[in-house]
Design a protein around this nucleic acid. Structure first.
Lengths: 263, 263
DNA sequence: TGATTTAGTTTCACATTATGAAACGATCTT
DNA sequence: AAGATCGTTTCATAATGTGAAACTAAATCA
């Protein structure tokens, strides 16, 4: 009879809209509401308000103090808010170290996380050199493609790694790329043993990549931090080792900021 | 025609329930969803899912990356979560004691509650002395995983414990983890008898956990307070007992602030 | 490059589902 | 104890949400 769609692609589901109107009643000033107050603020029918409130309460979006009968915003919102917040927190925790890394090494600095079995660049700092490493924030890649993805894969279960490699087969991007599954496994093992990855021209020719894992409170690897820089800039063995040390220290510092306790 | 009321005073508004089901698709691991994924996870009709998602997006509960078309939890949830966080009476009651604990023990201090049969971290103090919201607040875990969850489980009915263990089976996180149901029951009994839990490397290797329950005016256990610290820092028996005493006193103090009357 | 598959959007007829007036119960007030 | 206020439950009604189908856009393939 009536259309649910407004012009401008805005659908409205009345009962949902009303439920959200109820949540809107709560703010920093007014943290507690009784049913009648909600009714007054929203203009809803008492029964309707009660029904929606009960439903929201059952799902943890509101909670009721059984004594005063008053409602407050519930734990589920706290939890969901935490997820949103944590989307920023990694970047925030890493920001300072990334600036530092960029200044001290002059390299391109990259931060990435795993999302849906792929690598997503979360943040980056451009290097000084002429060679631009094309990786944009928010960009997705196959996990095994570059240094960050390989570091993240090193800490997955063997089953998960096998599953991912089946769906995203290894491919050669340069003559130095690893395309053999066994060689790849050994590489992952080495990453776990060393606590970092150092790679020379495997993802992009002429580019050295060095990366290390970032862990959070749960001790799980949640991100990878790495630098990419042109080989000519970094000929000496000692130079590589210097960068490796800096990366490991930086990644550890971010981990610690995320609540990781080093033993 | 049909009643909206289920037994047990639980009203269900279908479209609201479904909208909340959609929000449930998102968690710390899977922060991005495409429409099709939501459809698969919820079992909703594509049109219905789209309509609800559009509505949630219009209200800021979801946001869409216009390029990838993928959805994420929106800023409104962050905002509402912030209100909950700031008005958490438990958190407020515990804040002072947590600061004190962190200073006197130098350990990481954790506060957690039970939600939907899982543990949710509500607040924490870093071992280093910085007070900060880091990504792990709001994090969910299986109840039996760590010290806080075990303390909370100790005060549930045996039926509830059995039910939870059926849905979240015991698993070994370290060689010291309890994986036997009977041993686990005995452990819960010991917690009730002692009024605290002391655990050595069961959840995380090399970490000692000591935790105690917090009750409110209703005399029910509503939260758990605990510290985690490296075993090397705490070799002596007397040291452990010292911390145990401090934790029990702290948890009791918080309980008392929540209206719990001892006897 | 066009062909095929997959994902996202819009329409619209239909009946399931949300609605709210009214009556009832529970608390608080004096 | 009587009156007032707030919360809960019922149930008849139609307004509202629903989903199959058709459509368009965007990947993916060959």
């Amino acid at each position: 009879m009536k259309l649910k769609m407004n012009k401008g692609n805005i659908y409205k589901v009345q009962s949902l809209e009303r439920a959200l109107d109820i949540l809107d009643c709560f703010n920093f000033q007014d943290r507690e509401m009784r049913l009648t107050e909600v009714v007054q603020l929203t203009g809803l029918n008492k029964t309707t308000a009660k029904r929606l409130i009960s439903n929201l309460t059952a799902r943890g979006y509101l909670k009721q103090d059984p004594r005063s009968k008053r409602y407050q915003l519930g734990l589920r919102l706290f939890e969901l808010g935490g997820i949103v917040f944590s989307s920023f927190s990694l970047r925030k925790a890493a920001a300072h170290r990334m600036n530092l890394l960029q200044r001290t090494t002059g390299a391109t600095v990259l931060l990435g996380v795993m999302m849906e079995d792929q690598l997503v660049y979360v943040d980056k700092r451009e290097g000084h050199g002429m060679i631009r490493i094309s990786s944009d924030i928010g960009w997705r890649r196959a996990l095994h493609y570059g240094m960050l993805g390989m570091v993240l894969m090193a800490y997955l279960t063997p089953e998960k790694v096998r599953d991912i490699l089946k769906r995203y087969p290894l491919e050669a991007h340069t003559p130095y790329s690893i395309t053999d599954k066994n060689a790849f496994s050994l590489r992952l093992e080495k990453i776990r043993k060393d606590g970092y990855l150092s790679e020379r021209g495997e993802a992009v020719e002429g580019i050295i990549g060095i990366a290390a894992p970032i862990r959070d409170y749960s001790r799980q690897v949640v991100a990878a931090l790495g630098v990419a820089l042109p080989i000519p800039q970094l000929s000496e063995k000692e130079d590589v080792q210097r960068i490796v040390d800096i990366i490991k220290i930086s990644a550890d510092a971010v981990s610690s900021d995320l609540g990781y306790l080093k033993i």
